[in-house]
Amino acid sequence: MSTSSPTPSDADLVALALRGDGDAADVLVRRYYRAAFAVALGVLGNRQDAEDVCQEAFVKALDRLEDCRDPSRFAPWMMTIARNRALSYHTYRRIRETSELRPEIAEAKDSPAEDATRAELGARLEAALAGLTAVQREVVLLHDMDGWTHGQIAEALQMTEVRSRQHLFVARKLLRERLGLPMLKEYTHE
């Protein structure tokens, strides 16, 4: 990758990736992985599935990069792919779950106590998120996990900024109610 700017724009990175620059594609993946994950998790409500879908979405996006007509709007385009992949997976999962028994945790690994605690807290967060609507999950995850502004969220999720603020307000309120005060203390930033 050869750009003069220290933080290349999405449009620059897309242009480079279209010429086969793997490093530029790498930067795009790192830049938007968390956001795509947030969108996928918003739809699916399951961390592992969201990661798998997120990975698939990036592979598909890089494969069809020529379809991104406005490279400066790579983020909304990428989020649309992530959401569509997640929705397809969601439908597939529902069909699968009705036709066969879902196996228990497939890859149960021995993990240290810290990992177990992390996993438990993650599971509690997932459970709390499950009580929200998909769009509330997407908004709160994009905003609080990846630091997106309401303007960016509104553009990516095709809603108004006011609507985004409303979703965030309700989502946070519901999450706090479900997680409870002890959990909130654990989450407090140092």
């Binding site: 790192r30 968390r34 961390r47 890089l62 967060l125 997932e126 609080d144």
Partner: peptide, 30 residues
Amino acid sequence: IDFTFLDPTVDAAAFERRVSQIRFAASGVM
């Protein structure tokens, strides 16, 4: 809300594996 426990990039090794897998899968088209 602190979503650190759900953040897929916190586990750096796992995240790097994901990025590598994406890069490998896209290497043909690149």
